[in-house]
């Protein structure tokens, strides 16, 4: 009791010095915070405001009232969206295409990576790797031109040269939905396999050559070595890339589904994915309600998938998890 005033005083002095210490520290780091301002401001505008803007899915946007002032309509936009067949079609297409892409990308890219590791000769190696990677450097618009050279209905190479060679009839490629799953899959793998192969190749290179030497001495042939050494040792990378792919399965490569089919209305059944649906709703149909509902649906499911797939990666290999 007697000591109380004294303790109180000491505490006050302590608090003051803590405060000045904090201020001093802040002052010392102020320049660093200033450096961060443009980037943080940009993320706030470009990323965080649109996140908050997702609420427009629950509004009927009226530009005269402004976006914030528009009337709330509850789940109306979602009711409309999920009443149509569109919701089912775009979800199905998105998942089936991207699921197939993950599978085929991995398969082809692992094959390329393993075979590249067999190539001796620097120039030859650079030629193969460089050429296989080239499609990755080209925009989807240019890829669509390449597609056009083959698929154009009156002058395309398939209809004019290749199909007649086999005595087959012309095909109206841009009007017939059934061919597009194949066309889009080939185009995607052609464009992306090289990219993934670089990642798998790095993993293959990282394998200790002693394993192969031992296997050769034991009389294991190449195929055996690939199956029992290479694949098991790059498996962590394969699983990681697959998980990352699953986390992004709700997002599609817009250009592939919009430009390569030339936005042809007759084949939406097999080419429409969530991204193209949202784009068309917003930019061409002016149906903001529907587009924003589909957009929120994509953001939420996409987010959930990222979290789930990351949880799985974490269980499997802690170091490779994103968080």
């Amino acid at each position: 009791m007697e000591n109380a005033p004294h303790v109180d005083g000491a505490r006050r002095i302590g608090m003051e010095s803590v405060l000045t210490k904090r201020l001093k520290k802040l002052q010392r780091y102020l320049p660093l915070y200033i450096l961060m301002v443009p980037g943080m401001l940009y993320l706030l505008i470009n990323n965080y405001i649109p996140m908050a803007g997702l609420i427009i899915a629950f509004k009927k946007v009226n530009f005269t009232k402004g976006i914030l002032g528009s009337d709330w309509v509850g789940f109306k936009n979602f009711e409309f969206l999920f009443q149509t067949k569109d919701a089912f079609i775009i979800t199905r297409n998105t998942i089936l295409y991207n699921g197939g892409f993950i599978l085929l990308d991995t398969l082809v890219a692992v094959a390329i990576a393993i075979l590249l590791s067999e190539i001796r000769g620097k120039l030859k190696f650079r030629f193969y790797q460089g050429t296989i990677l080239l499609p990755n450097l080209i925009s989807m618009v240019v890829v669509s031109y390449l597609g056009l050279a083959f698929l154009k209905m009156d002058t395309g190479m398939l209809n004019k040269t290749i199909l007649p060679l086999f005595g087959m009839d012309e095909v109206m490629w841009y009007n017939e939905a059934k061919y597009w799953p194949l066309i889009l899959t080939i185009t995607h793998v052609w464009k992306s396999a090289g990219f993934y192969s670089v990642i798998f190749f790095a993993a293959v290179l990282g394998i200790n050559p002693a394993y192969y030497e031992a296997a050769t001495i034991d009389g294991a042939n190449k195929w055996r070595q690939v199956v029992s050494i290479t694949i098991p040792l790059i498996r962590p990378v394969i699983i990681l890339m697959t998980m990352l792919g699953i986390g992004r399965i709700f997002y599609s490569d817009f250009g592939l589904f919009y430009n390569v089919p030339l936005n042809s209305g007759l084949i939406y059944r097999t080419t429409d994915v969530i991204d193209t649906y949202v784009f068309r709703g917003l930019m061409q149909l002016g149906d903001i309600g529907m587009a924003s509902a589909a957009g929120l649906y994509q953001s939420l499911v996409g987010f959930t998938l990222v979290i789930v797939s990351n949880y799985l990666v974490r269980k499997f290999s802690r170091d490779d998890a994103l968080f």
Partner: peptide
């Protein structure tokens, strides 16, 4: 704050409306 932008995003519609409006 930086990392979270990689996990979640508002998508095309709010981004478009914000930038244009």
């Amino acid at each position: 704050a930086v990392f979270f932008t990689m996990l979640f995003n508002g998508g095309l519609v709010p981004t478009y409306l914000m930038y244009t409006q």
